[in-house]
Simulated assay, not measured.
Amino acid sequence: MTDRLPTRLLVSAMLRRANDAGGFGAVLARGDAQAGAVLVVAVEAGVSRLLERGIGPDGRVTLIDSTPAEDLAAYWQRRRQRDPDLWVVELDIADAERLAAEALAAD
């Protein structure tokens, strides 16, 4: 058994925190409730970026910017075709990266 919370709870917490802070959060695609990876579409001032949990150069869990050069929606849809367990969550709030990091990259 692992100490990580189920993905559905992490996603729920991110959405609740975004909404409580006056922002907007929505699930664009549902993945595996227990252990699916999460791709966050962080929208700040009309600019969208993709963020996901990964391992940084120091070996610690961190958020990695996965924003593609091409069409963002087409990119995450291709990722979902290869990984149906992947969650895609949109956060439209100031400092969306911080909110996502607190939920996804906390050890």
Rank of each mutant, 00 (worst) to 15 (best):
R49T: 13
R49F: 01
R49K: 10
R49L: 08
L50P: 02
L50Q: 01
L51P: 01
L51A: 01
L51H: 03
E52A: 15
E52H: 12
E52L: 10
E52Q: 14
R53F: 00
G54P: 04
G54V: 05
G54F: 04
G54S: 14
I55H: 04
I55E: 13
I55S: 10
I55K: 11
G56V: 13
G56C: 09
G56A: 15
G56W: 06
G56R: 06
P57E: 12
P57V: 13
P57R: 12
P57T: 15
P57A: 15
D58Y: 04
D58G: 02
G59Q: 01
G59D: 08
G59I: 11
R60K: 11
V61S: 13
V61P: 05
V61L: 13
V61C: 12
V61R: 12
V61E: 12
V61W: 05
V61T: 15
T62E: 15
T62H: 06
T62K: 08
T62L: 09
T62G: 11
L63P: 01
L63A: 07
L63R: 02
L63K: 00
I64M: 13
D65L: 11
D65Q: 09
D65S: 07
D65V: 14
S66M: 13
S66R: 14
S66K: 14
S66P: 07
S66E: 12
S66L: 12
S66F: 04
T67Y: 05
T67V: 03
T67C: 09
T67A: 07
T67R: 05
P68L: 09
P68F: 08
P68H: 10
A69P: 08
A69K: 14
A69Y: 09
A69Q: 15
E70Q: 12
E70P: 07
E70S: 15
E70V: 05
D71G: 03
L72S: 03
L72F: 08
L72V: 13
A73L: 10
A73D: 13
A73K: 14
A73G: 05
A74S: 14
A74F: 05
A74K: 04
A74W: 03
A74C: 07
Y75C: 13
Y75R: 12
Y75W: 12
Y75I: 02
W76S: 05
W76R: 00
W76M: 10
W76F: 13
Q77D: 06
Q77V: 08
Q77I: 08
Q77R: 15
Q77T: 09
R78V: 08
R78W: 05
R78N: 11
R78T: 11
R78A: 15
R79Y: 00
R79V: 01
R80G: 00
R80H: 02
Q81E: 14
Q81W: 02
R82M: 12
R82S: 14
D83C: 11
D83T: 15
D83W: 02
D83N: 15
P84Q: 02
P84Y: 03
P84G: 04
L86Q: 06
L86C: 07
L86S: 06
W87C: 00
W87R: 06
V88H: 05
V88A: 03
V88W: 02
